[in-house]
Computed example of a mutant assay.
Amino acid sequence: MTPSDEILDIVDENDVVVGQAPRGEATARGLRHRCAFIEVRDAEGRLFVHRRTPGKLVFPSHYDMFVGGVVGAGESYDEAALREAEEELGVSGLPRPEPLFKFLYETAGHSWWSYVYRVRCELPVNPQVEEVAWHTFLTDEELAQRIDDWDWVPDGLEAYHRLRAFRPAGTAS
C-alpha cells in the first residue's frame, strides 16, 4: 500500500467524521481530514527541524519544525501523534506526546483539523529516509533566524505561530 492508498476519516467543520476516502483522493479533492503536529525537543530543549523529501504528497522539499502527519481512519489524534513521531524520528519508546491545542487549517486547496502536541526526545534519532531528507536540532533563536529565509510548510508555519501565541512569553517547552 502506498501513502496515497491510506484510508482517512473525512470530517466536517466541527471535526465530526462524515465519511472516508483514500489519502490521495482526499488530497486531490481538498477533503477535510485530520493531522497531528508534534513539536519535538531534545534533552537540551532544542527543536527538531527537517526538510521533507521531494517525493512527499503535500509540500515536498519544504522545511518543517514539526513531525507528524495524517490521522488514519479510526485512529485517534493521540495514537497518530505517537505513531508519527516514532516513525519520522526513527525511535521507539518515545514518551506519549502531550496534546496542546487543535485548529482548523484551511486554504483554497487544503483543509484539515490539526492537533498540536509536544514531546521531549532524549533518544538518538534516525529519521525515516522516506519522510526526512535532512534534519538538525535548533535553538529557538536559531529557528527564528531562519523563519523568513527557508521555504516552510505553510500548515507547520501556521501551527508554529499559533504555538508561540499559545505559550507564555519566554517558555520553549
Rank of each mutant, 00 (worst) to 15 (best):
L100K: 07
F48D: 02
R32Q: 15
S173H: 12
V70R: 08
N14T: 11
R23N: 12
D15G: 11
T2W: 07
G170H: 05
S61V: 05
G170M: 06
E25K: 09
L100A: 02
R34E: 13
E88Y: 03
E44Q: 13
H135S: 11
H33G: 11
Q20F: 02
V18C: 14
E79I: 01
L89Q: 07
I147H: 05
T53F: 10
H135Q: 12
E75Q: 14
R32L: 14
K56Q: 13
S173D: 13
P95E: 09
P124T: 04
N14M: 10
C121K: 01
D5S: 13
L100P: 01
R167V: 00
C121H: 05
Y117V: 00
R46P: 05
A26V: 01
A85V: 03
A165N: 11
E79R: 09
R96P: 06
A169P: 15
V58S: 14
H50N: 10
G170D: 01
G69Q: 06
Y115H: 09
L94F: 01
G170V: 08
R83L: 11
T136P: 00
L157Y: 15
E79Q: 14
F103S: 03
Y160C: 04
D42V: 01
L89K: 06
A144W: 02
F66M: 06
D5A: 14
G72A: 14
F59S: 12
G68E: 11
T171I: 11
L123N: 02
R146I: 03
V16A: 15
S61Q: 14
F59G: 00
L138T: 00
C121V: 00
E44V: 03
G45M: 07
D148I: 04
V132Q: 02
R23L: 13
F137N: 06
W112Q: 13
P97M: 07
L138K: 01
C35W: 12
T139K: 00
A144L: 12
C121W: 01
D149E: 13
G19I: 02
I10P: 04
W150Q: 09
G30M: 06
P95F: 01
V129A: 15
A21C: 08
E98N: 03
V116Y: 04
D9H: 08
E44C: 03
R96F: 05
G68W: 04
P3W: 02
S111G: 14
V58H: 11
R96I: 08
M65G: 13
T136A: 12
A80Q: 09
A73L: 12
T107R: 07
